[in-house]
Nucleic acid binder design. Structure first.
Length: 874
RNA sequence: GCUCGGGUGGCGGAAUAGGUAGACGCGCAGGACUUAAAAUCCUGUUGGCAGUAAUGCCAGUACGGGUUCGAUUCCCGUCCCGAGCACCA
């Protein structure tokens, strides 16, 4: 009695108001959200005395549907890391904004006539309201919206940089077009090693004779932003060009109208200049293997040779790309793409009408037809090429299995060693001559499939006979180069990035045309004008084309296409560093301080779009010296999808959408945050489970009640016991490690274990609960702040210092060994931590359960792994 | 077809420099408190067999092999699921 009276109890009343035994999360959360906002707790300013950490979420497109519980998953994870880093002494940049240009807002405008700016703003307000309820530590002063003029001014500015630069393969850098022109004036272009289009060779004198239009045509081949003839998805019924995602299975997503491929002139960015850098850079960043793999495949680098084939009776040649020059002796025919210019020029008179008819039909084949019908089709041109090694004439065919856009649009066909060529040869009874066989075996002839393996030996191949494929490739290229008919060559699947959209709701180009010569507009921004109608013009031009007083300027006619959705998102991570700067896209100092994004969280669906383009723009800006690094995102984590309770994708269509507002209302934001983390590993897809949230909700209730006795807030100043310290430090260790490895589900579990154990011990000691509050603060910022205040601490818990882990509390003096017989655990025995192995062995062998198994026999072997396990082999 | 992931209780998932499989939570069953309910707390919960019970034995991490004293973890083969690419020469 005397002792218990002597125990000192602290009874603390937060700011004169007693803290309720009931955990009123709604009250607590709105109280602190307001408080944090008023006190600008999350305001971030550059502070060179502190190390920085940049945690970024992929900014959302503000759709009309609002957020469902799947959207904030990644935001919660990055929020936890941000808060954790801040508590560990980092100055953390954790911003949010909106990817606000795009199709859905425009579609909505077409239907309702409401200006996209208006509906976008409404949607943003709704998003903001939802985000605010979840207690994120975003610095909203740094918000960016890609559709703001103050933002897209700089998107346009970056475009002007692309326009004003070319890629020099010698320096491996983008350089000024102005300098290139100076060079042309003095030297022509013979010695320029550029990543460019097909520019013809000219001398300095010839250059001086070209007129402005001719000069621009040439420069267009060099510019990194250039006008290109590209294939677009044209929907005749809708009278508009469609984006790839608007075309599903060859028909328009809306209405299901047929879509054809149509050539059109539009802006492109010369991303292929950066193909190698984009590939090599992957080795320097911490991204998931799958995303790296997707980008690798997308870039699709392959090494081989380009070889010219003479055509009998023609002066022109057929240039082909092949990765297997070692099989040249087996090339028995050639195939050119239907789009190839050679189709018309080489085919014999007798074949002409048939060939042209085939080519025409193949060119217009829709995607859907191509997908359904993979049988080989083709037609003989009547022309023969000469195999440069065998000197034999081989027929030239046209077929749509050869793609115009890859390599040279023509191939040498080696049916014996390529499956597609084999199929074609079978269909049209063409010669199949094997030239590679397995190392220690003969090929079974006649072949019933192509032998395409790359580990084999050449035969039937004169000077290549007996060589392994790898060395034969080398030798064949040497020979081709000696004969002056070809050269070593690297090819990429990566296409130039189409940069024009025939749409209204996007960034206007800072371009006017004067006699078809594009010129930069110097005054930025070029403002997006208001229009009467958002409907497609039917001509394939954007609705801007109808705004005559905007299109026609004293300088010339404006470009009426707008930039694609990915323009604004390719550099937004830089703007957050200095979002309100009117002088430059971001100041040198802020760029240098915040530097690369340390952690980027977002969906994997952007693997070949946004994530590739951002890397491209970063490398380009690095070339120009605007930024000092050449990869934007050091570490990338792709959160998984949260599916509906029925296991299907969460969507209005299935009626399985869970709204985070409702969850916050019913359980509180802290519970929502904790539950989303507890569901499973961040990167996995997993279904939502309404029952599951109860468990997390109960946990927070238990946690809250640790601070109460007899329904009164009561925390003791007593010194904790060894057990209590052990529980705390075990949790510090686990949670710290788990946050670093982004294993949030297991840290929530560690909290539950900790609270269960402290509950059993009825521990209410300040020395334990105070550090525990800090551990939980990144996950559940409101409840911890409330209890922190109740402990009488004035400064916010989110400005505190992360608890230090002390291993001494975890040191045990004994270990409970699992004792197994033949690998199966049969009992357990406790031994001192430093017990002698011999003693353990002797003691184990005399144990009665072990004796039962050994049955008096001496064991074959006894394995003792110190402080791990004992295994007795009998 | 090719490439990359992944298959663990009724469910979400823990545990891999090889060392007690199923942490934590849900669900379910039983119990305490209550006139009752809610809330809260306690106990049990991989399957099979045996036993009144404590408990014991057998099987078990998609399937079949292998390496090892010991395999969810490493190796080989098969099946299934998911994602990406898809005539790229």
């Amino acid at each position: 009695m005397q002792r218990s009276l002597k125990r000192s109890f602290l009874r603390i009343f937060a700011s004169g108001m007693s803290i309720s035994y009931q955990y009123n999360f709604n009250e607590i959360e709105s109280k602190w959200q307001k408080h944090w906002k008023d006190s600008q707790l999350y305001k971030v300013i550059e502070n060179p005395s502190k190390p920085k950490f940049y945690a970024l979420d992929m900014f959302p497109y503000p759709s009309g549907a609002g957020l469902h519980v799947g959207h904030p998953l990644g935001y919660i994870a990055s929020d936890i890391v941000s808060r954790f880093k801040r508590l560990n002494g980092f100055n953390v940049l954790h911003p949010m904004g909106y990817d606000a240009f795009g199709l859905p807002a425009e579609q909505y405008a077409i239907q309702t006539g409401q200006h996209p700016a208006v509906t976008t703003e409404q949607n943003i307000l709704r998003f903001r309201e939802q985000l605010d309820k979840m207690g994120f530590c975003f610095d909203w002063d740094r918000q960016v919206k890609t559709c703001d003029m103050g933002y897209y001014k700089w998107t346009q500015w970056i475009f002007t940089l692309f326009f004003k630069h070319w890629y020099n393969k010698n320096s491996q850098k983008a350089e000024k077009i102005a300098d290139l022109i100076l060079y042309f004036e003095g030297n022509g272009n013979l010695d320029i090693n550029a990543h460019s289009g097909k520019a013809t060779i000219f001398t300095a004198h010839e250059w001086s004779q070209f007129n402005t239009i001719q000069k621009e045509e040439i420069l267009n081949h060099y510019r990194l932003a250039f006008i290109d003839e590209t294939t677009v998805n044209w929907c005749e019924v809708m009278g508009t060009v469609l984006a790839n995602e608007e075309v599903v299975n060859g028909v328009s997503e809306r209405g299901g109208y047929p879509v054809v491929r149509k050539k059109m002139k539009q802006w492109s960015l010369r991303i292929t200049a950066y193909a190698d850098k984009l590939l090599d850079g992957l080795d320097t960043i911490q991204w998931s293997d799958s995303i790296k793999e997707i980008q690798k495949n997308w870039i699709g680098r392959s090494e081989g040779a380009e070889i010219d084939f003479n055509i009998e009776g023609h002066s022109s040649k057929i240039k082909v790309f092949t990765t297997r020059p070692d099989t040249l002796f087996g090339a028995t025919f050639m195939v050119i793409a239907p789009e190839s210019e050679l189709v018309n020029s080489i085919c014999s008179e007798s074949q002409k009408s048939e060939v042209l008819a085939y080519a025409e039909k193949a060119k217009n084949r829709s995607e859907i037809e191509r997908m359904v019908d993979t049988k080989k089709s083709g037609i003989f041109t009547g022309a023969y090429a000469i195999n440069p090694f065998t000197k034999k004439p081989i027929p030239v065919w046209v077929s749509d299995y050869v793609l115009a856009g890859y390599g040279t649009g023509a191939i040498m066909a080696v049916p014996a060693h390529d499956e597609r060529d084999f199929e074609f040869a079978k269909a049209f009874q063409l010669d199949i001559i094997p030239v590679i066989k397995p190392e220690n075996a003969e090929l079974a002839l006649p072949l019933n499939e192509a032998f395409s393996a790359k580990d084999g030996v050449c035969f039937n191949s004169e000077f290549l006979d007996g060589l392994q494929v790898k060395s034969a490739i080398k030798k064949a290229i040497e020979e081709v180069e000696k004969l002056n008919i070809g050269t070593k060559k690297v090819n990429y699947k990566l296409r130039e990035a189409g940069f024009g959209r025939q749409r209204y709701w996007g960034e206007p180009f800072p371009i006017v045309f004067n006699d078809s010569v594009p010129q930069l507009v110097n005054e930025l921004p070029v403002e997006l004008p208001k229009v009467e109608s958002y409907k497609p013009t039917g001509t394939g031009e954007s609705p801007l084309a109808a705004v005559e007083n905007w299109v026609n300027t004293p300088m010339g006619k404006r470009e009426t296409d707008t930039m694609p959705g990915w323009a604004g998102s390719s550099w937004y991570f830089l703007r957050y560093m200095d979002p309100n700067n009117n002088e430059t896209f971001a100041s040198k100092e802020s760029l240098e301080y915040w530097n690369q994004v340390d952690l980027y969280v977002g969906g994997s669906e952007h693997a070949t779009g946004h994530l590739l383009y951002s890397r491209f723009w970063t490398k380009f800006l690095n070339d120009l010296g605007y930024i000092s690094w050449d990869e934007p995102f050091k570490r990338l984590v792709n959160q998984g999808m949260i599916m509906g309770e029925d296991g299907q994708k969460m969507s209005k269509r299935w009626g399985n959408v869970v709204n985070p507002d409702d969850v916050c209302e019913k359980y509180g934001a802290d519970t929502l945050r904790l539950y989303e983390m507890f569901l499973g590993p961040l990167t996995d897809s997993k279904p939502w489970n309404t029952n599951g949230i109860e468990g997390v909700s109960r946990f927070l209730g238990k946690f809250w009640r640790l601070f109460f006795q007899n329904e009164t807030f009561t925390v003791s100043n007593d010194e904790p016991s060894a057990d209590e310290f052990k529980i705390l430090h075990k949790t510090i260790k686990k949670v710290t490690e788990d946050i670093e490895s982004m294993s949030f589900n297991t840290s929530v579990s560690a909290f539950m274990v900790c609270v269960n154990e402290l509950g059993t011990l009825k521990c209410n000691k300040k020395a334990i609960l105070e550090p525990l509050l800090m551990l939980l603060a990144p996950f559940a910022p409101h409840i911890t702040e409330e209890l922190w205040e109740a402990l009488g601490i004035n400064e916010s818990i989110h400005k505190a210092e992360w608890p230090k882990f002390n291993n001494e509390y975890l040191i045990e003096n004994s270990f409970n060994y699992p004792i197994s017989i033949n690998g199966k655990t049969r009992t357990q025995l406790e031994f001192p931590i430093d017990a002698d192995i011999k003693e353990i062995e002797a003691s184990v062998l005399s144990n009665e359960i072990v004796l039962k198994w050994t049955n008096g026999q001496a064991p074959k072997k006894v394995i003792v792994v110190k402080n791990r396990i004992v295994n007795v082999v009998i």
